[in-house]
Design a protein around this nucleic acid. Sequence first.
DNA 1: TTGAAAGCGCTACCAG
DNA 2: CTGGTAGCGCTTTCAA
Lengths: 336, 336
Amino acid sequence: MVKINEVAKAAGVSISTVSYALSGKRPVSRSTRERIERAVDELGYSPNAGARMLAGRRTQIFALTEPLRTDTHAPTHMSFVLATAIAARRNDYDILLLTDEQARDGMSRVAASGLVDAILVLDVAPDDDRVPLARAIATPTIFIGVPDDSDGLVCVDLDFEAAARMAVDRVADAGHRRIGLVGQTDIAYVKSNFPPRVRSAARARAAERGMHFDFRSSGAVMPDLVEVVRAALELVDQGATALLLHTTAEAHDAVLAAVAERGMSVPGDLSVIAIGASFDTAVSPTPVDTIPLVPQESCDLAVDLAVRSLGAERPTPDLYLVPPTYVSRGTVATLV
Amino acid sequence: MVKINEVAKAAGVSISTVSYALSGKRPVSRSTRERIERAVDELGYSPNAGARMLAGRRTQIFALTEPLRTDTHAPTHMSFVLATAIAARRNDYDILLLTDEQARDGMSRVAASGLVDAILVLDVAPDDDRVPLARAIATPTIFIGVPDDSDGLVCVDLDFEAAARMAVDRVADAGHRRIGLVGQTDIAYVKSNFPPRVRSAARARAAERGMHFDFRSSGAVMPDLVEVVRAALELVDQGATALLLHTTAEAHDAVLAAVAERGMSVPGDLSVIAIGASFDTAVSPTPVDTIPLVPQESCDLAVDLAVRSLGAERPTPDLYLVPPTYVSRGTVATLV
DNA sequence: TTGAAAGCGCTACCAG
DNA sequence: CTGGTAGCGCTTTCAA
């Protein structure tokens, strides 16, 4: 393992000059910098992580806490982990994984030992016990998701409520009067933070627009395709002319297949919009209008806030919401 | 952030005594140790991670590289990540996540900077490019999965070949003469290391036992339930009296449902064994005999090998295979 | 059973 | 624009 003094000797400069050339925190003449860079390449030098942490008071590591519950949707979850890792690396940061029970214990531990510069919180529950912990520690903490009590916290998320209103408005503008929402599993409305937000915002906006609104879940704990299809058809039978879908890729496909099997066409007989889908609705057999949840957007913002938390002015504790965007694929029909 | 000298002062001892009391690397009298422990608790002391790395030449961090490909089965993958994290924590280690392109770049980087004590490799491909890299770096590397060329590497895995042979023997002993294997997706036989091992071992053992053996995949890239069902029924139509299943939970359920719909009973008309399933086949509508892949077993072993790699005698490069176990649920019938 | 002190490899201050 | 050097907080000899 080659050290900074060897690089300095090889380049014929002092240790400090090597350090400054690499960090860019002090101007270094073009020629010396190039000599140093060449030495670094040739020797395969990489600053010792421990020494850097100790001297520099920066670890270049973010913790990512995620209570990998068995009822979380694995593919969605993985997208977020990946998006976070990518965003972090872009800012020269690594991700330390804190799973499960560690989510709480681990947070205190890495905060107390100074192992990480900031903590990113994934899979936020409405009454998440990482909330009081975040308030208690000095390490900057960014929530990707919004808990019930977000007072004093920095939270990032898709603006699910705006997304729900956008969807309702879209079908309302198209003349629909009765709509149904096929949501997530029952447990998700208790354990997760955003499903309730989507449901209540949609319901409220529907009321404002004088529409009839009805809701069905995707099952109890795990999405149950039979249940979802039954729920969706029930909504249609009760007169809904538009369906808002806030569920898994498999459930989307099952509902659309069942609708087709009934001889109904989309959007001829039924309009459909996906809300907050993090999978690609374009590859579905029936590509539907969507107001997507793009993990990379939220994670980029979260990492940006984490980095800024280490700078001079820490970002104000607040809800940092990503505005929703509407992707049209022609699955909303205008009623005359 | 409280430091070791504050603890020393509070306990009325020297810095080194505190260090030794905490590490246990030198005997400390009962009374002083208790005084130190009390001071640690009261002050909430936790050793600075950077200082420890620098002075101790141990980071207490393992890297976990995983090329989160879109075609990997997310739930299975998550089980392994979780199992690794749990095993690591039991040994007082944290997990640093290296995803995607970083899988390669990251490995060199963390090795060169001394950020981690060892590297765990997940989701191993037959021609994995992390193999030559592992040979080139000094940081101990443990593969969870077996690449084609495992020469000089430490690899951990379920003994898939033994599992396949065990399944074939079980149905052979029960008098079956024609068996079918419903395997993973086509791409898995190219991109992953264990599906081909299961298939060839099953085929070879079937030949040894004088049985007729046939194989079908679960689809091209993603498991296609329609395709799987078709494949399974085809095998049955061609006379197979026993089916070995090496696919996803959803595919298992779909096949069993289709078999039932045909009016066939398990095991009356058809015997079934699941091979290498990492999900719980007991919660399926029809619980079948299984030779499970238990992520925690492999990951415990891998972490153990990683820890031992840092000790006096490094484990010999070799294949460390976890012997399969047969879980009977009465889905294999004896033919007379 | 305990203490004193020499580093670990780097960053960043103080000089020039 | 560059160099010298004092720490960063801990581990681990060496001494007692």
